[in-house]
Amino acid sequence: MNDKVIASETFDSQLRRTLVALLDTMIPANEEFNAPSAGIDDIVNDVIQSMSHDAPLIVGEMLARLNEQSSARFEELDEAARWDLFSELQRTEGHALRTLSGVLLQCYYRNDQVLESLGMEARSPFPLGNAVEQGDWSLLDPVRTREPFYREV
């Protein structure tokens, strides 16, 4: 079974709701910057599809434990309670949270909406490339006047 199938099967609809709520807690939407939440469908789908090797299992188990830590499921809690639980998660689930964080950052910061909110073009570098100014070459003038300083042998 390949990684994508494993990830899809791990995150059933219930666990997916928990994941959405957790991602939204980690990176919520921001109106000022027009930045989307990490819990939007495109990003959540990308996160699930991008987990490889044992990441789905590690993250899935962490989400299950998260739901066991309070009287209600994580996604049913209010914002403040979610934040409290997430803060606890940061203390207790270092490896699992780091695994999820790595995938989340990769997926969030390649999302079209996110890049547009940053004023970046949502495209591959090739074939258009990028513009970089030549710069002011007169800045080198003080260095040009310096005597050679490599050691003669």
Binding site: M26, I27, P28, L105, Y109, L115, M120
Partner: peptide, 20 residues
């Protein structure tokens, strides 16, 4: 953009939550 996020988050300079 991704590398910046990694560097910032894993060095503790970019927090999770509202201030991210």
């Amino acid at each position: 953009p991704v590398s910046t996020a990694y560097t910032g988050v894993f060095s503790g300079r970019i927090p999770w939550g509202e201030d991210h």
